[in-house]
Design a protein around this nucleic acid. Structure first.
Lengths: 106, 106
DNA sequence: TATATTTGCAACCGAAAGGTTTCATAAATT
DNA sequence: AATTTATGAAACCTTTCGGTTGCAAATATA
């Protein structure tokens, strides 16, 4: 069951969990309180997030604190990187081509 | 069947399609040549990408050219924005807190 | 020690995903 | 006009997803 970061963030509940624990570690019980579904369902989501290393565990007695692994989030950003020039229209592909043609003429 | 950008990029084939047409519009047939699965399977992926507006169609006779809608890609980037400070360790949450404490002391 | 709390795991279930094959339609070619 | 080409849509199938309920294990508390 190989997990993928992109597959992990596909689910809206999991994205909400990520946002929830981003700035403060939380236990499964505390997280589950923010959602309508059962604690076990949230636990399943946490398992998936853990498997792809988006989230890490920190045991404290019988409680487990879940924290976001920001480094892993960077992976998504890295994939997006190749397209960033496209939506920053200042350097759109067309502009680039035109720029190249212009500078070659000189 | 409401489609979501995050769900759309969850599939590796769809991510490959996005990368493929990012800098050059392509027809379904041309796209399908790059994959092992059937043309119809690719067509299904294109449908999903179109439904969430990640991709746009441009008819030319009986051919349809698919282009990436870079603006929509920005949506993913926008969601990522809230976490960017976390992985740019120069401004990690901890650093921010320490900085605040430090400046308050002065 | 007995009980309550926190958590993960397994089994089950309906819905959705992703693939295939078959068919219909429209445009280009002969 | 007949045929080929490009494409999308429908029907079907297997696997995965996301949820549930029930149970077991470990730690904290009475």
């Amino acid at each position: 069951m190989r997990r993928d970061v992109f597959q992990a963030i596909a689910d809206p509940t999991r994205r909400a969990i990520i946002a929830l624990i981003a700035f403060q570690a939380m236990t499964p019980n505390a997280i589950a309180e923010h959602f309508d579904s059962s604690r076990q369902a949230v636990s399943k989501h946490l398992r998936i997030l853990t498997e792809c290393q988006l989230v890490e565990q920190e045991q404290s007695g019988r409680e487990i604190y879940y924290t976001l692994n920001a480094k892993k989030m960077k992976e998504i950003d890295k994939w997006l990187e190749q397209f960033r020039l496209l939506w920053e229209n200042r350097f759109s592909q067309l502009d680039k081509v035109l720029h190249t043609l212009k500078t070659q003429k000189k």
